[in-house]
């Protein structure tokens, strides 16, 4: 039974680790639609451990260990596809096609998305390559600098800028020319 004491410990751990676990899952997953499911599975495992042994000290590192295992098994059993770690492979660069040559001082506000429609923008982002979604998440939600995003996703800074700039430009145009009607 999930008693009040266990629930309290769980809520504290959740509060302390959620943002980092979410970031880890977003960066490691190969399908954005899976993120919520995986995060839930990770914390259900934490509850299971808490219920089994209340005296066991669950650390942040322990939860990351669960996260790593859950991501691997999620993809092994649900997709039968091997997960490709974005943290360890240099091969990702090869898959990225550089179209624009973005200057260092490029202005992201030049393409201001002034239509405040969460669902449309969310759908737009989801349909993009998963790497683009990750860049947007890290840049806008985690407030990471381009240099740090490049290092986290193991791609070049130029590619991060390219993806950000190109996608914003596309999104601004999409929203301006009937994005809402098309969705």
């Amino acid at each position: 039974m999930l008693d009040q004491e266990t629930l309290k410990i769980f809520e504290k751990l959740y509060e302390e680790t959620y943002e980092n676990i979410l970031k880890y899952v977003v960066c490691s997953c190969s399908n954005i639609e899976d993120v919520k499911d995986i995060v839930q599975t990770i914390y259900l495992e934490v509850i299971k451990k808490l219920k089994k042994d209340a005296s066991f000290k669950i650390t942040k590192q322990y939860i990351f260990g669960i996260a790593k295992n859950k991501i691997n098994s999620y993809y092994r059993f649900n997709y039968k596809a091997k997960i490709v770690s974005l943290f360890s492979s240099k091969n990702n660069e090869k898959e990225i096609e550089i179209i624009d040559n973005i200057p260092d001082e490029f202005d992201l506000q030049a393409y201001l998305i002034n239509k405040n429609n969460v669902e449309i923008i969310w759908d737009f982002l989801k349909k993009k390559k998963v790497i683009i979604f990750k860049i947007f998440y890290l840049y806008y939600y985690c407030n990471l600098k381009i240099k740090d995003i490049a290092s986290t996703l193991n791609i070049s800074e130029a590619n991060v800028k390219n993806y950000l700039y190109r996608t914003l430009k596309e999104l601004a145009s999409f929203m301006k020319y009937g994005g809402e009607n098309n969705v």
Binding site: L22, V35, K36, V39, L108, Q109, Y111, L112, I113, N114, N116, V118, I121, W122, L125, F136, Y137, Y139, Y140, Y141, L168
Partner: peptide, 15 residues
Amino acid sequence: MSNEELFKKIFEEKF
């Protein structure tokens, strides 16, 4: 609303 605020809002809402 700036792009920063907009995307932050979207991610906060969806996650």
